[in-house]
Computed example of a mutant assay.
Amino acid sequence: MPAYPADVLERARRIRLVGFDVDGTLTDGRLLYGTDGHEAKSFHVQDGMGLTLLRHAGIELALVTARISPVVEQRGRELKIAHVHTHERSKLACMQQIAAGMGIGMDAVAFMGDDLPDLAALRAAGLAIVPANAHPWARAAAHWVTPRPGGEGAARDACDLLLNAQGRVEAILAHGEHP
């Protein structure tokens, strides 16, 4: 297991809701368009497993993107994520609304993003996480930087941090199969 900073573990222990930006966080940030104008995205399978493990651990999940994206909506359904918000102008307001609906404060919210549109949510979150290749502005707001870049397992790194901090890893490993 990685050695996590004590202050990051303390923040991670309180988390009940995690919001993820999509482009540059769950994907490598490239936008792919077919000749028919349809969008394609590449998601890392380990990120999907991490999100599933968090959901099974009782941590609420949200995908929040400024883009209109049927692909993101499809991925959210596939992973059974209750909160999938596309074409979202204020990621902070979105996360605040979800947290309020859950009856929790922003200190119990983690947010993972990589660039300027994520900055307000990162600054307000109890735990701000960015991938290794995040823009310096986002990196400056982070409590923790993942070892891997966006779209290459960075979200799994964030999920593993939360699972470790909340003492869930041993039970997952003892079960030893897909939840």
Rank of each mutant, 00 (worst) to 15 (best):
P2I: 12
P5R: 08
D7Q: 13
R11A: 15
F20W: 10
D21E: 08
D23W: 01
G24W: 08
D28L: 02
L31C: 00
D36G: 02
H44Y: 15
D47G: 10
G50E: 04
G50P: 11
L51K: 02
T52E: 00
A57Q: 13
I59K: 01
L61G: 10
T65H: 12
P70D: 15
V72Q: 08
V72M: 10
E73L: 15
Q74H: 14
R75C: 03
G76T: 01
L79Y: 03
L79T: 03
H83D: 11
S90P: 12
K91D: 12
L92K: 11
C94P: 07
I98L: 05
I98A: 03
I98M: 08
A100V: 07
G101E: 04
M102G: 03
G103F: 06
A108V: 03
D114T: 14
L127Y: 06
I129Y: 02
I129D: 04
A134K: 00
H143R: 01
T146Y: 06
R148A: 05
G150W: 10
E152L: 00
R156T: 00
C159H: 02
D160V: 12
L162P: 00
A165S: 08
A165T: 07
V169F: 07
A171D: 14
A171P: 07
H175Q: 13
E177F: 05
